[in-house]
Amino acid sequence: MQIKEIFSSQLPVGEKLTIKRNRFSPTEEKSGNKRVSIVSGIHGDELEGQYVIYLLATWLANNPNALRGTIDLYPGVNALGIDSITRGFPIYEVDLNRSFPGGDKEFLPGQLVDALAQDVKGSDIAIDIHSSNIFLREIPQIRINKEFSEATLPLAKKLNCDFIWIHDAVTVLEATFSHTMNKLGTKTLVVEMGVGMRLTKEYGVQLLNGILNLLKSEGIIVTDEEYEQREPFSSEIGDVFYINSPKSGLFVAELNHCAMIEKGQKVGSIVNPLNGEILEELFAPNGGIMFTLREYPVVYEGSLIARIFGNPDNEKN
């Protein structure tokens, strides 16, 4: 276990910003050993990854002889954001995950992401753990850019998540950590799970099992433990259906997150607390699994309420 500051900046008044990495290395270094980097907290309001990394650090500390490769943990990239419940980099108000690849001559957030990218560079695999945001709750899922899916999809299937979403290449997403690292030759996966500002323990344990499974199958750890794996839904064989709020108001959910849902089933209502009026009732446009559900109840017209994955026009997927 070796803790290193990968980025630091003295703050104006008696404090220092530091971004830390913890490296777990095998007792016996061999050429050809693989390296995996696990990153979380690029968004300061997303904490689920902190718990997963805690669980992984505990496992690694308790199983030092299992290591056959290097594992780098970066639990709190946006350290100031995490401690101030701020999604972006405080003071500058910028989204770090839209600031990659950054550079030494850029403004401070650009220098920070550059330092992270340079430190992770050379890893064989990277996993960037997100928690959606404070507005939406997500089942454990992997997001993959189609551009890199040939290399990353086989890895994603080992991570014990419920859903793999392969999305089209979008230029604006080239400013993300995952795109930058994939371009630099590190196979990088993005995990989305849970909800902002909270921990979901069962999801943390589920992803830990997936990460250990991946590490074992890549020969980075050696262990007799068997890790049961879920068979994820994949967006290759179905469609994603969106429910956006048709009205502004207060969203009251009718269903639990992650439920299997039938076409036409009621998802919830938009209500007005002032006069007790139901402004709109919302129904599933398609059957399938509701993998995203609105968590923060205040909505505007257009706010995302839910996402359902299923086969089109299938009543009962």
């Binding site: 945001n133 505007y300 257009g302």
Partner: peptide, 26 residues
């Protein structure tokens, strides 16, 4: 506030928008 107050979206990072999408996309 600098951005869209509810979810802090930068409106100048969402063009050309989408009529059936999120609030700021609309």
């Amino acid at each position: 506030e600098r951005f869209w107050p509810l979810d802090k979206t930068d409106l100048n990072m969402i063009f050309p928008g989408y009529g059936a999408g999120e609030t700021t996309q609309r």
